[in-house]
Simulated assay, not measured.
Amino acid sequence: MISFTKQGAGKPIILLHGFCETKEMWKIFSEQLSKSHKVYCLDLPGFGESSLKVSQLNLEEVAVTLHDWMEEQEIQKPIIIGHSLGGYVALAMAELMGSEIDGIGLFHSTAFADDQEKKHTRNKTITFIKKHGVEKFIDSFVPPLFSAQHQERLVEEIATLIQYGKKTAKKTVIAYIQAMRDRKDRFEVWKTFGGAKLMIAGTLDPAIKIEASKEHEPFATAYHELEGVGHMGMFEAKKPSLIYVLAFLEKGSTQI
């Protein structure tokens, strides 16, 4: 079962959260975007209030699950914007569904697969979680996603994200770390996808290096860098991020 919220009317927009996040992270974005669009915010399988039936999964299976959910909800030609893990899922959906999707957005995400260094880090994280549990992991995982200059200003937001993250089951956390570690390279999907394409990157993002983000720019409909921002631009640079998304949706809707 996929848990979701639906708000507004117009062209459908699907917002996908990142790793150990929930649909609640998009609350302010949904409120603003729903003034001109029908906005769906959902919990990926295993996160928030959505169930996960298996302990092992891959992003292709998640894409199929969300495709089935779209058919149940009779959602046609959406624009899908994903944060981090949500972007990986959006790309898997673009590969699966092609022209059934009108646009995709990568919000602090990438079409590249993990390199060997990143895979090693993922494996170490799995070992840590098995030994110390999810709560201790989340305490150390969330704050560094924000750039140092924004951590003190956004104490409440960080605390809320930690609270939601700690509710995630251990099997879900490990299953998604493995899925991200083993995901295929989808840069060719990014290059050849025929719909509108948005990328928003943080110049200080510790998870998605800005050099990698820049390689996506030649194939993007809209590409933006958030100066001095880490991995959480929807909080660290809320106003410009929202402006970029709204502009992309307006342009994407008219050109498609």
Rank of each mutant, 00 (worst) to 15 (best):
L91R: 08
L96R: 15
G98M: 07
D102R: 11
G103V: 10
G103T: 09
I104V: 12
I104C: 14
L106A: 12
L106V: 09
L106H: 06
F107Q: 06
F107A: 11
H108Q: 07
S109A: 10
A111L: 09
Q116N: 09
E117M: 06
R122E: 04
R122D: 04
K124H: 14
T125P: 00
T125R: 07
T127S: 15
F128S: 05
K131T: 11
K131F: 02
H132S: 13
H132W: 13
V134L: 02
K136N: 12
K136Q: 13
F137T: 01
D139L: 11
D139Q: 14
S147K: 02
S147Y: 03
A148T: 14
Q149T: 12
Q149K: 15
Q149I: 06
H150L: 09
H150W: 08
E152P: 00
E152F: 06
R153Y: 13
L154K: 06
V155P: 00
I158F: 03
I158K: 02
A159W: 00
L161R: 08
I162W: 00
Q163A: 08
Q163Y: 14
Q163W: 10
Y164T: 03
G165M: 04
K166E: 01
K167Q: 13
T168N: 05
T168L: 01
A169V: 02
A169G: 05
K170R: 07
K171G: 01
A175L: 06
I177F: 11
Q178V: 10
Q178M: 11
